[in-house]
Design a protein around this nucleic acid. Structure first.
Length: 227
DNA sequence: ACATCGATCTACT
DNA sequence: GTAGATCGATGTA
């Protein structure tokens, strides 16, 4: 019996209801912290607790649904941002910098272009599969026994960034528009994060509207893209 | 049709 | 700490 036979399913099956995603987007961004992201593929199942998110709002100059045209910011639906206008509880996935995919959770009712970017998760299940997908060497047998859920230093690089976690979870454009209350990609209730452990900061890597503190994180989590 | 640039990551200094 | 990779969506012509 292989010690690391990939599990076909994981998580608990306690899926968050669609109504969760109809709350104001900033509420959703905070409430997603601690929720469990689960992805089942033929290779196996991986899951992780969200520890870092960012809110993108209607009319927000940093949003993909707002474009610079003729020297002005204009809200506009395009081929890329179409899913942001779609129904809540679905995925908006985009390709960036010629290399990476990023996963968003669409919020608010259809027609309102708001979403939450998932920037980092704490690996929970399928860690060995994540390592293979990320090209990170497995932990030594000694470490493996000693650590179980704890991470090696290298394992911090599995999912501590929006492009890294999509690679570890094998999320790509085929998941654009996916229903996040169903297989293969879903969000479950996960664990409770005390309100006092949630911090807000400016969002990362944007130019416009860079002062809005709409990045949310679990304080002192080792799994953040940055503190 | 073409030029620009990005909600990033990695490698290297 | 910073440069380079890398390519599709977008805007302008």
């Amino acid at each position: 019996m292989p010690t690391h036979s990939p599990r076909a399913s994981c998580g608990t099956g306690r899926v968050l209801p669609l109504s969760f995603y109809s709350q104001p987007t900033i509420e959703v961004a905070r409430a997603l912290l601690g929720k469990l992201l689960v992805h089942e593929t033929a290779e196996g199942c991986v899951s992780g607790y969200m520890v870092e998110t960012e809110a993108y709002l209607q009319g927000d100059p940093a949003s993909h649904a707002v474009l610079r045209a003729g020297g002005r910011w204009v809200a506009k639906m395009t081929e890329r941002n179409r899913q942001m206008f779609g129904p809540p509880g679905h995925a908006y996935v985009y390709f960036i910098y010629g290399n990476h995919y990023c996963l968003n959770v669409v919020t608010r009712e259809e027609g309102v272009a708001e979403a939450v970017l998932i920037r980092a998760v704490e690996p929970a299940e399928g860690i060995d599969l994540m390592r293979r997908r990320r090209g990170i060497a497995p932990a030594s047998p000694a470490n493996e026994l000693r650590q179980q859920n704890a991470a090696t230093r290298a394992d911090r690089n599995l999912t501590n960034g929006p492009g890294k976690l999509t690679q570890a979870f094998a999320i790509d454009m085929t998941h654009n528009g996916a229903d996040l209350t169903a297989r293969p990609l879903r969000v479950e209730v996960g664990r409770q994060i005390p309100a006092g452990s949630i911090l807000a900061s400016p969002r990362i890597g944007i130019k416009a509207a860079s002062e809005n503190p709409w990045r949310f994180l679990v304080a002192r989590s080792p799994w953040l893209s940055r503190p």
